[in-house]
């Protein structure tokens, strides 16, 4: 007998049932819906508000705002290039330092160690993600920067001094130190996403690899390759965090709006200039320009985060 042969009566109308719901039910469901919509509205509102507040600067400078590195509150000339440069270089450098380490930790925690080690170590890595950035910055000024000045930078300069990247005066603070702090801060994010996507790869795949005589690393490598878009998502998410990070960077990057090849030189980031100048900004064009930097930051992190989430969903949603 075919299913299509069966004649079915009229549906017991869910509409009818729903219309007979108690007022409390209708009220509560709509109340939670209202809050959920509030959440969406909030994000839209943030975008609109920041766009609106940067209108003056956008009108005044147009595209030259992002192509000029002239930032002078006295003459009211504002161009964000130096900050954009500082943010991009420090974040990408941080990602390059952090990514191999993060993948290593993720593999270490999910594939290598016994549970008795995994639990405390993963707890510590979680804590690392929860430490306020002000403390990273504080530690950066008084511990990391002196260490960079006394040990790391002289060593780099003597080994790779022929590269413009590692030339110039040694202050301790500067682009390289900022990148290093950022790398420490984003490692927990990237490694936890990597662990999540590795978990989403079925164990049977690894077992199959072992059955074919693969070594442990080869099996792990296969899992990593299968999870690569998710890991990339984690990396991009970490990049987004690094781009928006404010306090720690502000405290160690040197806060000098310049574009220099050397990583030892002080630099300035988009978030840092907002943090440093906003409260004391005089003149609406100055404030508007700072908010436009915020708008750029918002736009970039929005794109980066959306991209990251799509990549992560693509792996974790399959299971």
């Amino acid at each position: 007998m075919q299913e299509s042969d069966i004649k079915i009566s009229e549906e017991i109308s869910t509409k009818e049932i729903r219309s007979k719901r108690k007022p409390g039910d209708i009220f509560f469901e709509n109340l939670t819906l209202l809050f959920a919509l509030l959440l969406i509205g909030l994000v839209l509102f943030i975008a609109i508000e920041i766009y609106g507040d940067s209108a003056e600067s956008i009108e005044h400078f147009g595209f030259s705002f992002i192509f000029s590195s002239d930032w002078n509150p006295v003459t009211e000339k504002f161009g964000a290039l130096a900050f954009i440069y500082g943010t991009i270089v420090s974040s990408i450098l941080a990602l390059l330092i952090s990514l191999p380490v993060s993948i290593g930790v993720a593999v270490f925690l999910s594939e290598i160690v016994h549970k008795s080690v995994r639990t405390p170590v993963s707890f510590l890595v979680e804590i690392l993600a929860a430490i306020p950035s002000i403390i990273y910055g504080f530690w950066g000024i008084y511990v990391l920067a002196p260490f960079m000045a006394s040990t790391v930078q002289p060593a780099l300069s003597s080994l790779f001094g022929f590269l413009p990247l590692f030339q110039g005066p040694i202050f301790g603070t500067g682009m390289l130190t900022a990148s290093l702090i950022l790398a420490i801060m984003i490692t927990p994010i990237i490694s936890s996403i990597t662990r999540d996507v590795l978990k989403a790869i079925p164990v049977s795949q690894r077992e199959a690899a072992y059955a074919l005589g693969a070594t442990r690393w080869e099996a792990i490598k296969m899992a990593l390759l299968n999870a690569r878009s998710g890991i990339l998502g984690g990396a991009v998410l970490g990049l987004g965090r690094a781009i928006g990070e404010t306090m720690a960077v502000t405290m160690v990057i040197g806060n000098k709006a310049q574009i220099k090849a050397s990583l030892f030189e002080p630099a300035y980031s988009m978030a840092s200039v907002i943090a440093n100048e906003f409260a004391e900004a005089s003149g609406s064009l100055h404030i508007s320009s700072l908010i436009e930097i915020g708008l750029l930051l918002f736009g970039v992190t929005f794109i980066v985060n959306t991209f990251a989430r799509i990549l992560i969903y693509s792996v974790t949603r399959k299971t």
Partner: peptide, 29 residues
């Protein structure tokens, strides 16, 4: 008892009478 209410994709057809009242005569609760 219309427990399918919560199940996504579930639809009920036909008539049910509980003590001679159609189940949609009263509310679910």
């Amino acid at each position: 008892n219309l427990m399918h209410d919560l199940t996504p994709g579930a639809k009920v057809y036909g008539d049910i009478y509980v003590h001679n009242e159609h189940i949609t005569d009263n509310n679910v609760v």
